[in-house]
């Protein structure tokens, strides 16, 4: 509650929150908000020459090359982006927490091996890895989410590792251990609660990265597959047409940008609020 109150004091964070809320509403209420079905190829949706319709009265944001309503597709696309954002990033944060805490707490060869593996992943060209995986596996919503999670956990693991190392040195953990608490109790009751702010911040910032990565993969044609609408594949389907129908690139592009921006703004503000040492460092 305190966090929300502090968030509302920052104009940038409020701007971000409003957009996040709008995207969530769009995703949940897409069937009621969308003027047409997202995969309805309408005869009236094309001009007499068979070209997409520009934004106008019947189709607020215009139509695509198959005569489908762009606004409806964008609203349903919000579902795709949010599902992938939450699932992929949830999994990434979970893996990152697990690896980071285990490595930071256990030290020894288990921790060492885990961190060497993390170093290894840092040297991997992440985008290339994601593209290879997504292209060779049969792409679907869940595969895309897993590929993104597989690429994105590394950063979280490194931050959590550093924080855990710092925590383990602290007096209250030592005291707890002296009192005879087991490892499981220390980790669950004392280490993890201290990592909640980090998880929240990276959970939020990570959604921005995830939304961008999903859009990129879908734009390359190896993400979410048409006719299922995703902001990235809408642009993928119409990119060869973009000179004649720039709105087909402009609107989905703007939506992707705004969504990523919103999650970045909120995440950044959360970091300022939850981690006072970072305050004012931009």
């Amino acid at each position: 509650m305190r966090v929300l109150k502090e968030l509302c004091r920052q104009p940038a964070a409020v701007f971000g929150l409003v957009i996040v809320l709008a995207v969530v509403i769009a995703a949940i209420a897409a069937p009621w908000l969308a003027p047409y079905a997202p995969d309805n190829q309408m005869f009236e949706g094309l001009t007499l020459e068979g070209a997409p319709m520009p934004p106008g009265e019947d189709f607020l944001l215009g139509t695509d090359t198959l005569g489908r309503d762009l606004l409806s597709r964008l609203l349903y696309g919000a579902r795709t982006s949010l599902i992938i954002g939450l699932v992929a990033n949830g999994v990434a944060v979970a893996i990152g927490l697990f690896v980071g805490v285990t490595a930071g707490y256990m030290r020894g060869w288990v921790g060492g091996t885990m961190m060497r593996f993390t170093d290894l992943m840092m040297a991997f060209p992440a985008l290339l890895l994601a593209i290879v995986l997504a292209a060779i596996l049969k792409p679907s919503l869940w595969i895309v989410a897993m590929v993104i999670a597989l690429v994105n956990w590394v950063q979280v693991a490194r931050i959590v590792y550093t924080e855990t190392r710092g925590l383990v040195e602290r007096d209250f953990i030592m005291a707890e251990r002296a009192l005879g608490a087991g490892n499981a109790r220390i980790v669950l009751r004392h280490v993890l609660p201290h990592l909640v702010p980090t998880a929240i911040v990276w959970g939020t910032l990570g959604i921005a990265t995830t939304v961008l990565l999903e859009a990129t993969l879908s734009f390359l044609g190896i993400g979410v597959q048409p006719p299922e609408p995703s902001w990235g594949n809408i642009i993928f389907e119409s990119q060869s047409y973009f000179q004649a129908a720039p709105w087909l690139v402009f609107f989905p592009g703007a939506v992707i940008l705004l969504t990523a921006l919103a999650f970045n703004l909120v995440g950044d503000a959360l970091r300022d609020i939850l981690d006072p040492t970072q305050r004012g460092r931009g």
Binding site: L212, A215, T216, F219, F250, L257, L265
Partner: peptide, 21 residues
Amino acid sequence: MASAFVGVSAPQFVVALLLLY
């Protein structure tokens, strides 16, 4: 700083297509 935020949130392919356009 606001522009920098927009910059880090912009999808590469959209910027590429816009500049191209």
